[in-house]
């Protein structure tokens, strides 16, 4: 799980161009959307594409999205439990 969290952190910093921000510390349990990084709905959609492309899971409704992208940890747990591409 910790390895998956680290992997996701790197990917998210990459696809959302977070590397140049003064606080690139993506907190594991802090809110992913809103929060200090100011991520919004378009960032969430960018992560949705990443999840589908890299982990084979489609998140296509708002309710599920809000649950999955609540924090880095909720995302990792969801992928860990559901992704056909992650060996358990």
């Amino acid at each position: 799980m910790e390895q998956l969290i680290e992997e996701l952190k790197k990917k998210i910093i990459g696809i959302l161009d977070l590397a140049n921000l003064p606080s690139t510390q993506l907190e594991v349990d802090g809110p992913l959307v809103g929060g200090t990084l100011g991520l919004d709905s378009i960032d969430v959609l960018e992560m949705v594409i990443m999840v589908e492309k890299d982990y084979g899971l489609r998140i296509d409704n708002r309710e599920l999205g809000e649950k999955v992208f609540a924090s880095l940890r909720t995302l990792a747990v969801y992928l860990f439990e559901n992704s056909p591409k992650l060996k358990r």
């Binding site: 378009i42 960032d43 960018e46 949705v48 594409i49 589908e52 492309k53």
Partner: peptide, 13 residues
Amino acid sequence: ETGDRFPSPTDFV
């Protein structure tokens, strides 16, 4: 590049 599957939402907007 992704066979019409994974375009970027940010770029579309």
